[in-house]
Design a protein around this nucleic acid. Structure first.
Length: 285
DNA sequence: ACAAATACCTGTAAGC
DNA sequence: TGCTTACAGGTATTTG
């Protein structure tokens, strides 16, 4: 499941290959892949040069000459893959961006939750500046999102947790609160901070907030270094189809029954509300 | 205003 | 063996 570290890995891979290259054509074959606006609008970026990339939470932005932007969200099973021009399409290839020199960038997504869109074309008001967002001017479609998880500090987290009775994990994975954390990294961050994921936001102590802020940067940073987490289902792979290796460093996620790496007590999988979390009851309070 | 539930999907695995 | 069912989970939307 692509979360912030996986999207960041793909972003860096794309930056290394396609920056400065001209987009020859865009072909979309999956009707659900471009669903925010009529699919032909994607052709606005044909002929333009990729000038920069950005990421906000799990959203990936590809910026083009002339000020155009293409936004990609991989959701559950989406992958962006480099391919040589004309090579055989793997199953569930829904879009192909053909570049002048670097070959093709393909969007593959079995479950069709992922999407591509040109911001500002879906009936919502156009772009307007929102300060402090790493992607530059905020797009209306992304305006609801909180700060990127790599940008948040303890003070920010404390303010966002205050007064919420929702469990910590629900807050960490709420993109309006912090953008970029999903199921895997919420569990790992809670473990690294020594805080129970089912603790109500308002009951998270000052010290725990500090530890959560530090753990967020530390865990996500190490995960980016390891090029993300690839589980047995291989739903996430990089631009070249290679797996990440951060799953080898997971302390709790998908480790139910295995000994806690700190204290040896079996890791539990607990349900609260509609969600579940992996945790160590001894190490997390 | 917040929070909980649901729809959206399909590949995989577990159960019978 | 073959069929059915549960599960995975991010986000937009709906309901409470």
């Amino acid at each position: 499941m692509p979360e912030l570290p996986e999207v960041e890995t793909v972003r860096r891979d794309i930056e290394a290959v396609y920056i400065g290259d001209r987009l020859q054509s865009v072909e979309v074959s999956g009707p659900r892949t471009v669903r925010r606006h009529p699919a032909p609008l994607l052709r606005q970026i044909e002929g333009l040069v990729l000038t920069r990339t950005a990421r906000w939470g799990k959203y990936l932005m590809l910026d083009w000459s002339g000020g155009r932007r293409l936004v990609v969200h991989l959701r559950m099973s989406g992958q962006l893959r480099h391919a040589t021009e004309g090579s055989e399409l793997v199953a569930h290839t829904h879009a192909v961006l053909r570049f002048a020199r670097a070959g093709e960038l393909r969007f593959v997504d079995p479950r069709t939750f992922g999407e591509l869109f040109i911001p500002g074309t879906s009936g919502t008001p156009g772009t307007s500046g929102t300060p402090g967002t790493p992607g530059g001017p905020a797009d209306a479609e992304l305006a609801h999102m909180g700060p990127d998880a790599l940008q948040v500090g303890a003070a920010h987290l404390a303010a966002l947790f205050a007064g919420h009775r929702a469990p910590l994990k629900a807050l960490l994975t709420d993109q309006r609160v912090v953008a970029g954390i999903g199921n895997i990294y919420a569990d790992e961050i809670c473990f690294a901070a020594g805080v129970r994921p089912d603790r109500a936001g308002r009951d998270v102590s000052r010290g725990q907030v500090r530890r959560l802020a530090a753990a967020t940067l530390e865990v996500l940073g190490r995960a980016i270094e390891a090029r993300g987490s690839t589980l047995a289902d291989r739903r996430y792979c990089d631009l070249y189809g290679r797996p990440g290796s951060f799953q080898d460093q997971h302390c709790v996620y998908a480790r139910a029954g295995a000994p806690c790496k700190t204290c040896g007590r079996p890791v539990e999988r607990a349900g609260f509300g509609a969600r579940r979390a992996y945790l160590c009851r001894r190490c997390q309070r």
